[in-house]
Computed example of a mutant assay.
Amino acid sequence: MGKAARKKERKEKVRDVFVGRPFEGLTAEPELIAMREFVPPATATLPLAGEHSDRTVTIASVLPMAAAAFVRADGEVFVGLQVQTRSGDISRDLGRALSWALSAQPGEVLSVADTRSPSQPGERLQDLLDPSADLDVQVHKDFSWWLPEGEEPTGEVAMSLQRANEAIMPTERLASGAYWVLAGEKAHLRWVWPAEENRLMQALARLSAAGTLTLGDGTKFAGSFRAHGLLVPVWDLDPEAHAREWVEPAEALGARLTEASASLDETPLDAAERRARDGLIGRQFTLR
């Protein structure tokens, strides 16, 4: 075979384009980010649109052996967020896994979604879901929901189940995108906030300068990290308090943040608030 023929036979190289905010445009964006980044055993029913709107598909934080999707023996369909590989567009990867799951048979598993072939119209999550619907996330105590009720795990699934359960940090959902997490001896509120980063930082600074950037006595703003295009503020909480005790303080804090953000249209940051913003920017960290 000649050189020209060999070149012709080579598969065309696909350029992987990075999408910094893969879930933009979806009301469920904060929940998708939280489930992918730091919520352990959690599930939610996907709000499918179009021809599949009558189907039931469960999206999960993580599936056995970090699979992209599978159909359980009882016919229940699952798609996983925390997976083994990814491309530059996580929404496209998940859309492809979802499309596979909708046509798969009971017992079939998709270990890794297609992350290499060229993008095609209509395959991202934004094309397959109702964009206005949020996710009703259910946080579980362990990963026993991987199996139908009464079924015992065996082989690799049993090993994967044990490892996953051992890695769980107790977590409870307080509001949309807001989760209480007990990390060892410390407790935190991690809140995926659906706002443009600069505007959110200004709103946080306004509350900080006013002394109201807390959830009450014994709490403090710890910093923030970025995840899939959104800023995630974090607060340190009293680890002795039950997660439910933070629901009302979180609602009040959310209302103050919303009000502070709206006020920016009328009143720019003053000198004290700008200094507070600079301090908050210096308290960004990487979640590990």
Rank of each mutant, 00 (worst) to 15 (best):
G150N: 04
T219P: 02
K11V: 11
I168P: 08
E172T: 07
A175P: 01
G254E: 05
P41C: 02
L48F: 08
K3S: 13
E37W: 07
S176F: 00
L253N: 12
D142A: 08
V14C: 08
M169N: 13
D74G: 12
A178F: 00
A276M: 08
Q126D: 06
R199H: 03
A255W: 02
L213D: 09
I281Y: 07
S87F: 08
V192M: 10
D16H: 01
R173H: 03
T258I: 07
K11D: 04
T171E: 05
S160V: 07
A276C: 13
D93H: 03
L125V: 02
V157R: 07
L102S: 09
M159E: 14
R92W: 02
P194V: 02
E166M: 14
R277W: 11
R21S: 15
V71H: 08
D127T: 09
A97P: 04
V57A: 11
A243P: 10
M201T: 11
E29Y: 13
E240C: 11
V57F: 07
R190I: 07
D16C: 01
V39F: 04
D236A: 12
E156L: 11
V112N: 11
R288A: 14
R274Q: 15
S111I: 10
S261V: 03
V109W: 02
R6S: 12
G25C: 02
G75Y: 02
H140Q: 11
E31T: 09
M169D: 12
E24G: 13
A222Q: 04
N165P: 12
A262F: 11
A167H: 05
P233C: 07
A4E: 14
L32S: 09
G107A: 10
I90L: 15
S208N: 15
F78M: 15
T219K: 01
Y179V: 01
L200N: 04
